[in-house]
Nucleic acid binder design. Structure first.
Lengths: 212, 212
DNA sequence: AACCATTTAAAACGATCGTTTTAAATCTGT
DNA sequence: ACAGATTTAAAACGATCGTTTTAAATGGTT
């Protein structure tokens, strides 16, 4: 390989363009041009445009989900060791913090995360179903862990609140035009990022623990 | 006019198809076929596909926003009359309840609301900017009202929490595939709807009122 | 009756799309 | 050096897209 893998360059370009314009609005020609690759390269390496999207999602989401899953296990283990029930905020942190830390890792990660934030509620089944299949086991694990943390609340209610949590986080993650409504200065610094993360954790923890 | 306005039938068909497939994935041919109108009818009545989207959004969002705005004013007036600060939950209800009530009005309304839920975070600027321009004044009013309700919290924090609130509500509103992860039975009844609405209000009220 | 807005029909415009094909060139590992 | 995988180039495939045009038909109003 000369510089970087063509396959990697295609993934990077697709990731960036999907996050900026969405899946349906991004053509293979735009992707291959940005990746300085041949038009046929996508179908050669991945088979189809949809398979490229799957590869883009899996490349980063599988490790991230593994990380989040490990941290949930860690909270549960610590709870067992100390013979206590797991804390709601600790579980929320286990889920949220890796996501935002991951986002700061690189520019590519940041762009990727905004794809994920939108995929959840995408009107396009090709996008939505792909994401839901990747996140489904993790959500189930988090749901069960939250049931342990909030034993006085019914399972169904906890799932509904988890549903709201995902909405708040997904919205936060893809930084819609909403945030520009408040602040004129559009450049975001790490401080704002920490501010967002901590406030999100406070917000959803309070919502999850609210009296029934 | 024979039965219903062609213009109205086009709006109804576009509303339904946009909510099911998204804006980019819906062709004018699909819309005009569903509306039993001529292909040229869209460009005759509205000028372009994007202008049709604007008309679809404005038809229902302008009255809905007026309704939400009136209810916020009502809460603020009552607070002044009783020489108290407005309640957070009352303001949340003023914003959320008309939305869900509106959704139950008709099948068309339900489909429309899911367009709105997605528009907020859409990758397509044509969709997102259109929605943000329509909602901007209402969000500012709600933000100011919440600052009165939560005088001990800084304005910036309240806006961030309002941001999360919009995310939770938007996610809830377009009922993504998420809800199908929990329940096998997919038909939703009014009870589930009330359950969702009340839990959403509890959730975001607790989040907004959380200690700093 | 005449007028004007509305609607239909059908066809075509140029453009873009995902995908496939063909062929030659380049690189990689043994 | 040879074989096989990778990459490039260029062109074409059929399909769909938003939009425009032309013409004829229909409708209601004055």
């Amino acid at each position: 390989m000369t510089q970087t893998d063509t396959k990697t360059r295609l993934l990077d370009a697709a990731e960036s363009l999907f996050s900026q314009q969405g899946f349906a609005n991004t053509s293979l020609r735009a992707i291959t041009t940005a990746a300085k690759a041949n038009l046929a390269a996508v179908n050669y390496h991945f088979g189809s445009k949809e398979a490229l999207l799957r590869a883009v999602l899996e490349r980063r989401l599988l490790p991230l989900n593994q990380q989040r899953s490990n941290r949930i296990d860690q909270v549960l283990t610590e709870a067992v060791m100390s013979e206590a029930i797991p804390g709601t905020e600790a579980l929320v942190r286990a889920f949220v913090e890796p996501t935002f830390a991951f986002r700061r890792n690189s520019i590519g990660s940041s762009e990727f995360i905004s794809i994920v934030g939108r995929a959840m509620t995408s009107a396009d089944p090709a996008v939505r179903d792909l994401f839901l299949a990747l996140i489904h086991p993790l959500i189930n694990k988090l749901h069960l862990a939250l049931c342990l943390a909030l034993p006085h609340l019914p399972s169904k209610l906890i799932f509904t609140r988890l549903f709201f949590t995902m909405g708040a986080m997904g919205h936060c993650i893809c930084l819609s035009g909403f945030s520009q409504m408040f602040k004129d200065n559009s450049d975001s610094n790490p401080e704002d990022d920490d501010f967002m993360t901590n406030n999100l954790i406070n917000f959803v923890t309070a919502g999850l623990e609210a009296p029934c």
